[in-house]
């Protein structure tokens, strides 16, 4: 068991190292950092000094190590475009994205699993079929179109909700939250629906198909043959087995919520890290791109690690590896 956990942690660290390498290579090879940092008026002496300052004259592995060392300490360099330390910008912007992602993630998982179970149990029911058809539209609608549609309806036509920004925010230490003011909460409604809807339909369809698969298994048929109540069969026997594969994909979906936040943030001009990233791409602001990549990979890897450990808690076959008869 300990080896299992250790193995996962090691794997995660390896992934982070690889991502770090990608980020560093971007930093080092995409465009010329010297070009980016010095203006048109520069002397060879300036260039040489900056090269030494940045350590660009050292061998590649040394540079990589230094990059990692700095990254661990939260130093990602200075944004080409804004001329401020990247870490500072990220800290300022992270709360907006995290709040948005948390709210929509919660919506997506709770509603998605609920509807998935419902549509699987009532496989041929009218309402279940309706939900399935509507969900396919949900999968086919690009996130940005959902956002535009919602803005048009609730902001332009009805004028109920704001179409951009976070509203009023309260500062608690360095964390800025929009959850404590009514304008902040109002501003959160449309973006979180936009961001959560696509993930919700995906989770729902996945839960449904996994559950239908489980309902076909012999042990479910045997549970029925023992006369157990339909509810017991569905929830005690089928649902738990459904959740094993669902957890992995849901973990991945949570990761993609953070990525899809880029789109939602662009549509709603939400001042989070996603908007920062898309601007960085347009202006080839490499330090910001690299830092964003590192930051969200830490999140993804973290989520995946939690998912693996959850697996462990749910599935006894993993816990007792090696013991007992096979």
């Amino acid at each position: 068991m300990l080896t299992y956990v250790l193995k996962r942690v090691l794997q995660s660290a390896l992934v982070l190292l690889v991502v770090g390498l990608v980020a560093f290579s971007m930093f080092r090879f995409v465009g010329d950092p010297i070009d980016n940092m010095l203006g048109q008026e520069r002397t060879d002496a300036d260039i040489a000094r900056l090269r030494a300052d940045l350590g660009l004259d050292q061998p590649f592995p040394v540079q990589y190590y230094k990059f990692l060392e700095k990254a661990v300490q939260g130093d990602f360099g200075v944004s080409f475009r804004q001329g401020r330390p990247v870490a500072e910008i990220l800290v300022e912007r992270a709360p907006a994205t995290l709040e948005l992602a948390a709210v929509s993630g919660f919506l997506a998982i709770s509603i998605g699993i609920g509807l998935g179970v419902f549509t699987a149990i009532r496989k041929d029911g009218f309402l279940a079929n309706m939900i399935m058809s509507v969900s396919l539209i949900g999968v086919s609608l690009p996130t940005f179109l959902i956002g535009i549609l919602l803005i048009y309806l609730f902001s332009v036509e009805l004028g109920w909700l704001p179409s951009f920004g976070r509203g009023e925010v309260t500062h608690i230490g360095w964390w800025s939250t929009g959850l404590l003011t009514s304008s902040g909460l109002k501003a959160l409604i449309l973006p979180s629906i936009t961001l959560g809807l696509y993930q919700m339909t995906l989770i729902m369809r996945l839960v449904r198909s996994e559950m239908l698969e489980v309902l076909r298994q012999d042990y479910v048929r045997f549970a029925r043959a023992r006369g157990l109540k339909e509810r017991t069969v569905n929830f005690r026997h089928a649902l738990k087995n459904t959740l094993v594969p669902v957890i992995t994909v849901t973990g991945l979906q949570l990761g993609s919520i953070i990525a899809f936040a880029i789109i939602t943030e662009t549509v709603f001009q939400w001042p989070g890290v996603g908007l920062l990233f898309i601007n960085a791409i347009q202006f080839v602001d490499i330090p910001v791109m690299a830092a964003y990549l590192m930051l969200i990979s830490v999140m993804f890897v973290g989520i995946n690690l939690i998912v693996d450990l959850l697996y462990f808690a749910i599935d006894p076959r993993l816990r007792t590896d090696g013991k007992g008869a096979h």
Binding site: V15, L252, V301, N304
Partner: peptide, 16 residues
């Protein structure tokens, strides 16, 4: 590893 990163993000990075 790549699956950990959503497709749209990978595409954006490559584009960048």
């Amino acid at each position: 590893v790549q699956l950990t990163f959503p497709a749209i993000l990978v595409a954006m990075l490559i584009f960048g």
